[in-house]
Design a protein around this nucleic acid. Structure first.
Lengths: 96, 96
DNA sequence: TTCGTTGTTCGTAGATTTGCGAACAAAAAT
DNA sequence: ATTTTTGTTCGCAAATCTACGAACAACGAA
């Protein structure tokens, strides 16, 4: 038996990914410049590198961002397909 | 030192409130009929009454809903001021 | 080869979340 | 006074989240 729609589950999943100020910050940052390096964020945010890495992994697991190796760094960009899906889902959900 | 803006913190707070399918379901349900009773939801959703009560409390603590005593029931309604704030914040954040 | 840079993964700790049933509280109905 | 209805709170367990430093991996530079 399915009690929740796929959309409801997706909204909850994306909302969970955005349920921490660091991750909201990152997504907002990426909205402005589409890509950035972990090191850039690490200099700005008051958290350990390892903690930041975990937050980025959380966003990556939710599909909102993706990493691209650019030796010796990793370039993080928004995953546009999923980001647009998230936007559309929220737009509908919030009846905006 | 403030690292995150108030808006970022609010978005994270509201997102956290919406980070579970049950709570997305409830808000969607309330969007359609503005108010409902805990018992109504309890008949629909496959969770214990006590668990549902916790989810409603979570939404209440986040400010998205409010309860009104209507003996012997409690009528839950959306908290319109905060729901609109949440909409506006997400709208801006998602650049919709 | 050794060093420096970048960022992940590991190990750990404490807090929070999710879930349930049982117990409880408030008030109307019998 | 007892029962019924409605929903919360308590007590507990398991899982997840957040955070840190230390250790590690990959690779270019010296």
């Amino acid at each position: 038996m399915e009690y929740y729609t796929e959309d409801q589950k997706k909204i909850a999943r994306y909302a969970k990914a955005l349920s921490h100020p660091v991750r909201v910050y990152v997504m907002e940052h990426l909205s402005k410049q589409s890509c950035c390096y972990s090191g850039d964020l690490s200099e700005i945010l008051p958290i350990a590198k390892s903690t930041l890495s975990q937050h980025l992994k959380e966003l990556k697991d939710a599909g909102l961002i993706q990493g691209e190796i650019e030796i010796p760094k990793i370039k993080y960009c928004t995953n546009n397909a999923n980001w647009h899906e998230a936007k559309a889902l929220f737009k509908n959900f919030l009846s905006i």
